[in-house]
Simulated scan of single mutants.
Amino acid sequence: MMTNLFSTFDPSTNFNLPLNWLSTFLGILIMPLMFWLIPSRINFLWMKVTTTLHNEFNILLNNKSIKGSTLMFISLFSIIIFNNFLGLFPYIFTSSSHLIFTLSLSLPLWLSFMIYGWINNTIHMFSHLVPQGTPPVLMPFMVCIETISNIIRPGTLAVRLAANMIAGHLLLTLLGNTGPSMPLLMVNILIIVQLLLLTLECAVSMIQSYVFAVLSVLYSSEVN
């Protein structure tokens, strides 16, 4: 019996060790070794996904970035979507629902973009603080607003991903806990609703990982 609804997201174990975080690396054990040697339909599908992302990220970066920079963002997309899908399986810890995981991805990226931009393109970074066509009277306010919106970017990236993962899992948990007290007919309806919600969560897992990667690409394109 759960004492707290959020205990499903508790990373601690019986030995007071955060062993649940090892679920992030479960994919290395699940993925067969022959995946890298013998091409399969899954392999071709994943290559198609990565090629499409590479072409789209190149367009967003305006081909001004260093060659191979899209690999970093495709890897970011891969690790997020992998952890999101792993969290949908029963009894597997959802690491992407924790801010410590999402902030560890967004904060170093944002810091590296800011440091690179302010050192190499200082004038360009200053021009971003005042949008074109701003009246001189509003310029001080626009600088403050743009600075705040720039500072909260890693927080919004992290909170968006974590909140979406938590919301879906909480809804599934809440509906699942009402099952034992329901009549048989309602249990059948509940199972159908749970399957539909699980399908929705699969879509959310893909969409949120894509949004995280695309926003990271857009933030990096602004510093060049």
Rank of each mutant, 00 (worst) to 15 (best):
T156G: 01
F101K: 11
P154D: 05
T178H: 09
M125G: 10
I151M: 05
I191W: 00
V137T: 13
L170S: 01
Y116F: 04
A163Y: 13
P108S: 01
L111P: 08
S106D: 01
S97Y: 01
I148Y: 11
S96K: 00
T178E: 10
T173D: 05
M186D: 12
V143F: 05
P135Y: 07
S181P: 03
V187P: 04
P140F: 00
F126D: 01
V137Q: 14
M186S: 13
I189W: 00
L111R: 03
S149W: 10
G179I: 08
T147E: 01
H98L: 12
Q132T: 08
G168A: 01
L105Y: 02
M125R: 09
M186N: 10
P140G: 05
P154H: 02
N164Q: 10
I191Q: 15
T178W: 06
N177C: 01
M114R: 11
I119K: 03
L138H: 04
L107C: 05
L99N: 02
G176C: 07
F141D: 03
G117L: 06
I100R: 15
M165A: 14
H169Y: 04
G155R: 00
H169A: 13
L172Q: 09
S96N: 12
I145H: 01
I151E: 02
T178K: 13
E146C: 15
S127Y: 09
V143Y: 00
F113K: 13
I152Q: 08
I115Y: 05
S95Q: 13
F113S: 00
G168I: 08
